[in-house]
Design a binder for these strands. Sequence first.
DNA 1: TGAGTGACTGTAA
DNA 2: CTTACAGCCACTC
Length: 106
Amino acid sequence: MSDNTDNFRDRVYTVVAQIPKGHVMTYGDIAALCGSAYASRQVGQIAHFGPPDLPWQRVVNRHGGLASAYSFGGLDGHKAALEEDGVKITEDYRVESFDRLRWRPL
DNA sequence: TGAGTGACTGTAA
DNA sequence: CTTACAGCCACTC
């Protein structure tokens, strides 16, 4: 289970770790970069069990909103974390100008 | 090997 | 606008 480093999971870690500050990505985008555009669900599960070293706070859903069961202290903590990165959050806990901050690897 | 699960997404009503 | 249903993939037991 840990022998393979070419796993989808490892790729997710790399992608999330490469998200620049002030930008965000969707689960679908990350999954697509990992090779599977429909593995968005898996990305979320990996994130929950993944290392807290990575900026999961920059990972949001297609709505540009925060995840449901976030563990950084709830939506409140997630919102604060994104603001620390320079990302503005609306009252609906959605990333403002999400479409504009959405990062894409060149 | 097989079945279950999930921090999702897209379309439909 | 919100709510509901179905589909897809990778990981764990």
